[in-house]
Design a protein around this nucleic acid. Structure first.
Lengths: 340, 340
DNA sequence: GTTGGCAGTCATCGGGTCGGAGTGCCAGTC
DNA sequence: GACTGGCACTCCGACCCGATGACTGCCAAC
C-alpha cells in the first residue's frame, strides 16, 4: 500500500532520475527535497513503492529507478502543466512563420518539435478527408507511362505514376484529362469515388483500356486517404541519449526508419488526459521498442485530423514534452487554417 | 619512395582494415596474402608508406591503419570494379518496380541504396530544369492565404503557400488562375519567367496587390529550380559503425539532418573516374564531417541531372559502394524516363 | 633488396583490493 | 502506529598490478 507521501517520493524519484540518469537514494531525496522526515522513513516508503513494482534497484544496494509502471503512475498523476516559456513561444512563431508550402510547413514543424523536446519528432501527413477535388492533371511520362495528379481543396497533392502497358496518343490522354476535370471537379472525394464508376462508359471502345487503367489509378488516389506518410526529425537526439538503451540504439533507429512500425503504433494510441496519448515501454509490446516511450497528439486541417508526436527513451521529461506537443499541435492547426 | 609492392601492401591494409576494423600488422599480411617475401620486408614497405603519410599507427607497436591520404591513394588506384551479384540486381528491380509516384520512387530508391551500401544514402530531388509549365492551380486557404501549385511536364509538382495580407474574393483568385493558365501553359520555365513580367498589367488596379503577390510567388516557384530537397535513409547504419567515430556519432547525425550542410558539400564534389565523386575525411574540411567520406553520383531525368550518394565513416568499402551507386543511378534514370 | 633475430614498447586482460553509497532491519522513541 | 538512529551487509566501480601477446624498429648477415 503506497501512502500519499509515497506518491510524492515517486514523483521526485522520477524527476531526479530523468534529470541525472543516476539511481536515486533515500539520502539524496531528503537532502534535495526536505520531506520533513528522515531517510529511514523514505526508505520505508521506497520499500512500499518497490513492493508495488513502481521502482526497482539496478543492483542490490544502489538507488532506485522508476519502472515502466512507475512512469505510468507518474504520468497519470500529473495535474498542472507548466506553460512554455516566452522564448519557446517565440521560437515556434518565428520558426513556422516562414514556411512556403505544405511540405515546408511540416518539415519545419517536425524539426521544431524535435528541438523543443530533445527527442525524435514525428508528424503524419494530413489526410485528404472530406475535401473536394480541385483539379485533375494527367501527364505523359515517356511513351507508355503517365502521371496522374490530384489536387484537393486543402492543398494536398497526390501524384501517381501509372504504367499503361502500351504506347498511347497524347491526344487521348488530353481527352481523358478534360473529361475527368469536368466529371470530378468540385465533387467531394467520396462523391468522386462514385462518379468514377461510370466514367469509363462514355469513351469509345478503343479508348477503354487506357481509360480503365487511369480510372483505376485515380480511384486509388481518391481513396488513398490513409496513404499516411510520416516526416521525422531529431534522430541525433537519440544518439545523445544512447546510454538509456541497454543494448545499442541501432534497433531503435531501425524501427523508426521502418515507418510502418511507427504508423501501426501511432494508430493504436488512445488520447489520455491533456489530449496527448502516452505509451510507456512495455505498454506497447511487440514493436521492438520496449525501452522507448511514445507521446502523440493530434492536429487539425480542414480535411481532418492527423497525429504528431515524439518518441524517445522511457526516461524522458513527460510533462515538458506533453506541453510542447500540445503547443506545436495548436500552432500547426492554426497555420493550416483550422481553428483548433 | 613507395615501391610497386608498397601499393599492393597499401591495398591489402585498406581491405583488411575495412573488413575487420583491426589495425593490420606485417605478420598478418604475409599470412593472409602470401606476398612471397618475409614480414620484415613488408615492414620496410610499411615504413615507406608511413613516411609518405599513407598509413599510421594508433599507438607505438600496433598494426597500421590507413590515413585519409591512404584511402585516397587506394581509391585512385582502383581499376576494375566487381559487378553486382545477380541477387543484388534482382533486389534493385523488384524493389523499385512497385513505386507509385515520384516521392515513392525516391523513398524506395534511397532505402535500397542504404541497404546495398550499409551507409546513409542521400538523394537530391530532381530539378525542374528545362521543362514546360503544364498547369497552374491557385487555391484559397483560409480567408487571407492561398496556395499556388505549379505542375511541370516531367511530373514534378511545386506548391507554395502565400499570405495575401487581406481577405480576397474567391472569384478574383479564380480569374487569376484562369489567366495564369492561359498565359503560362505550355511555356518552358524560362519563358514563363519572362511572361510573368507583364502579367500583372492586364488586371484592374483594385486587383493589382493580389496579383502582384501571387506573381511574386509563381516567379519563385518557376525559378526555384534549385529548391533542392533531399531524401535520406539508413541513419541506423551510422549507429552500427559507431566505433569508427572517435567521439560520438551525434555531431555526424546532426550534420546529416542539417540538410544545408550536405547540399553544400554535394555541390562541391567533382566526379572522378567511374563517374562517382569521392571525398574522404579531411578533404572536405570545415563541414564537421572529418571522419566521414562522401560518395556521390548523378542520375538523369527529362528535366536535368541530380545527385545521389552515400555518406559514412572513412572506413568504408569504396569499390563496393561505387558500384552500388552507379547501378542504382542507372536504374533510377531509366525509371524516370531518361535513357542514361 | 631481403631476411632472421631480438630487444623494446604498449594495449589489453584478469585478478585482487579498497572505498563509498545505499539498503534492510531492528530496537527505541514520540 | 509512525518515525528515527544506528549498524551490519552488499555490491558496484575505480584503481593498481603483473602477465601476456602483438607489433615494430633496428641490425647484422645473406
Amino acid at each position: 500500500m503506497v501512502s500519499e507521501r509515497g506518491l510524492e517520493v515517486l514523483r521526485v524519484i522520477v524527476e531526479d532520475y530523468v534529470a541525472t540518469r543516476e539511481p536515486v537514494g533515500s539520502k539524496a531525496i531528503v537532502e534535495r527535497h526536505g520531506f520533513g522526515v528522515s531517510s529511514a522513513t523514505i526508505r520505508n516508503d521506497m520499500a512500499a513503492l518497490e513492493e508495488d513494482g513502481l521502482i526497482a534497484a539496478p543492483h542490490t544496494s544502489s538507488g532506485r529507478i522508476p519502472t515502466d509502471k512507475g512512469y505510468r503512475a507518474f504520468v497519470d498523476q500529473i495535474s498542472s502543466l507548466r506553460p512554455l516559456t516566452s522564448a519557446q513561444r517565440h521560437a515556434i512563431e518565428s520558426f513556422l512563420g516562414q514556411a512556403v508550402d505544405l511540405d515546408d510547413v511540416l518539415a519545419r514543424t517536425v524539426r521544431l518539435l524535435s528541438q523543443l523536446t530533445s527527442q525524435v519528432a514525428v508528424i503524419e501527413y494530413p489526410t485528404l478527408g472530406v475535401q473536394r477535388v480541385r483539379h485533375v492533371e494527367i501527364l505523359p511520362l515517356g511513351a507508355t507511362r503517365a502521371m496522374t495528379v490530384l489536387i484537393a481543396d486543402g492543398g494536398r497533392v497526390e501524384q501517381r505514376i501509372v504504367d499503361l502497358g502500351e504506347p498511347v496518343e497524347p491526344a487521348d490522354l488530353e481527352e481523358v484529362r478534360a473529361r475527368a476535370n469536368a466529371a470530378l471537379g468540385g465533387l467531394s472525394l467520396d462523391e468522386a469515388l462514385v462518379a468514377l464508376d461510370d466514367f469509363a462508359d462514355e469513351f469509345s471502345p478503343s479508348q477503354r483500356p487506357l481509360v480503365t487503367a487511369l480510372v483505376e489509378q485515380l480511384r486509388e488516389q481518391v481513396s488513398a486517404d490513409r496513404q499516411a506518410r510520416l516526416v521525422m526529425a531529431g534522430t541525433a537526439n537519440l544518439a545523445r541519449t544512447e546510454p538509456d538503451f541497454p543494448g545499442s540504439i541501432t534497433p531503435v533507429l531501425e524501427a523508426i526508419e521502418e515507418q510502418v512500425t511507427l504508423l501501426r503504433l501511432f494508430s493504436e494510441l488512445e488520447a489520455e488526459q491533456h489530449g496527448i496519448a502516452v505509451s510507456i515501454g512495455h505498454e506497447h509490446d511487440g514493436f521492438g521498442l520496449d525501452d522507448t516511450s511514445v507521446l502523440a497528439g493530434r492536429y487539425g486541417t480542414p480535411g481532418g485530423r492527423s497525429r504528431l508526436g515524439v518518441i524517445g527513451p522511457t526516461r524522458m521529461d513527460y510533462p515538458g514534452n506533453i506541453v510542447a506537443i500540445r503547443a506545436v499541435a495548436r500552432y500547426l492547426s492554426r497555420l493550416l487554417g483550422e481553428q483548433e
